[in-house]
Design a protein around this nucleic acid. Structure first.
Lengths: 189, 189, 189, 189
DNA sequence: GATGAATGAGCATTCATTCAT
DNA sequence: AATGAATGAATGCTCATTCAT
């Protein structure tokens, strides 16, 4: 059944969140779901296939976990919502970013993972880009912005913030970083 | 001797660069240096200790590989040098960033690694911060910048760029990203 | 299945008998049974657990291998049967005593082993004690005996005999020793 | 020098006493003496040779550590002194018995060790035998004793007591055991 | 006499995967 | 659908011993 597959993916996600991809063991995943390892291999031919499915699960989580949003938001409101959603996600599901980072590294060696992440990243960048584009057109954001490049800066900064926070959790502030980032996008007075 | 230790660290660094920390094997490191595994353990008690030494080696590389710099640089020149050095490093030693990312993730489970990276990160942030501070004072950079926060944005963005480039190497441009980032720091006309 | 576990225990017992605990290798045990080492670990998590199971096997052997016994034996007959059983065991399974001695030493460092041996030893002492008690009451044995202490002497002497025989096999006689020991327990004429 | 050899032997003895022969490591021995492992091999070709030397050291200890003895002792006094010495040794050097037991087992596989222990055992038995012989002649001990056999019983019981005490330290009493053993040797009233 | 460096052979244990049932 | 049993290939680490200096 498809339920079992989903259960396995969720279990794998949680184990990655706890101890990282390197320490992910098929036996632990099966045990968490309460099935035999052989049964795990009935649903997923290889560990790699299961890990790839976890990436899909992550994408679904990104789609699902969002901060509340006003109706008909302006570009600026949407941009704020973007940052708010990141913070909201960190509150609701703090392990998600860590798992994503694990996957990004894994993507260098596992094409299936890389391809999925690329899609995810392009979609994300595309959304940010179109928001910025709209903001520039409406005058809410600085006219000098190149939407595609600015989107790259924003997404890079968000990714990098997570890593930096992982290394120096006590001295790094998401709040200040995102506030500053947003103010740069605004038109010069 | 200390030569052997250095050789081992270099070999480990290269193997991490090639296949990632997860697939790093003591046997491969020893083989690369042309010694017995037991000899490897004569120099490093555990694999973990060797990996920690690789982090030190990375820090040394960061200190060593730099783009050429004019004398008595202005803050702006120094900031440009910062980005130029990043590009220069990517040309001279393209694997360095990947190895750093591996270490960042490893830092979550290996305190020895995390502590070293934290030092590295704080030093880097500190340098960027003091450059920005000087730029703000001299009027080369926007007066509205908070040097500490701005430094966090810059470093986060640089880290995130690397990861993003890893996932979508063909569609992401460091050039454009850094140019845009720099322009944001400049005073509003 | 339980058969495999028993096979492994028997193989381990035999290898200990041949070369001692110190030279016991999981690989040799697996090979003796004709299975992969990984399969051995399917049945026993650790070598220590397997060794502990060997102690249980030894206890079972002590319960099983006995000299023939008359019905309704007197205390004296039962005492003779005790020594006869020891001799009988040495004939049927000469390696048993050696393995027990190995385990006794191992017991100093392995609590699981020590605890099992303690039980075995207490049961044995208890049995000897109750025989002596009966003999004293019936007048078959010397009235001056303290059954508990006498049992300790008898069992100690039996253990020590084995060790002494191991060191000087040609000059030590179990026969004479046990005969003498028995005569001491008899009432003074 | 001979001092170094003695130092190494003493260090080995102590390490065996602490953790058993099985966990004896040449590196630990060398470290305890404060020399290089290679130097250890300058004094003793192999670990086995060093272990054999430890047996000699043990024999020396047996000769040296004795309870105080009256002059011109009667056979009975000498017999009591035998047991007293055992107790005295256990107080002064409690690890000695354990090391001897380790060696006895080792003797099964190491001829050098076995041969030395055999000599030790024969000397010990001989001494006990001659004491008993004297006691029988003088009437202090029971006339029905065969000195050689009785000596075997006494030594076996002493060896076995140690092992039994190792397995059930709280429920076994040397005191009572030896007292009982001695009373058996006395003439029937 | 002494040592730093080196090693061959080994060791218990791990792990993703397979397969007959 | 599910599993108990099995395994090949490793994996980090150990240890007595050697040898050039």
């Amino acid at each position: 059944m498809d339920d079992r597959r989903a259960e396995l993916v969720r279990a794998a996600y949680e184990l990655i969140a706890e101890k990282g991809l390197e320490e992910l063991r098929t036996r632990d995943i099966a045990a968490k779901v309460g099935i035999n390892i052989a049964t795990l291999h009935y649903y997923f031919d290889t560990k790699e296939a299961l890990v790839a499915a976890v990436v899909d699960h992550i994408m679904q989580m990104f789609r699902t976990i969002k901060a509340p949003q006003v109706e008909d938001p302006t570009a600026l409101e949407e941009l704020r919502h973007l940052f708010a959603t990141q913070s909201h996600r960190r509150r609701v599901e703090p392990r998600l970013d860590f798992v994503v980072q694990e996957m990004m590294l894994r993507g260098r060696r596992d094409e299936r993972v890389r391809a999925r992440l690329e899609v995810m990243m392009l979609l994300w960048n595309g959304r940010v880009e179109s928001i910025i584009e709209r903001g520039v057109r409406s005058g809410e954001l600085s006219r000098s912005l190149d939407p595609k490049v600015a989107a790259g800066v924003v997404t890079s900064c968000m990714i990098g913030s997570n890593l930096q926070h992982g290394v120096r959790p006590t001295t790094f502030s998401f709040e200040a970083t995102y506030t500053s980032l947003l103010s740069w996008l605004l038109p010069k007075p």
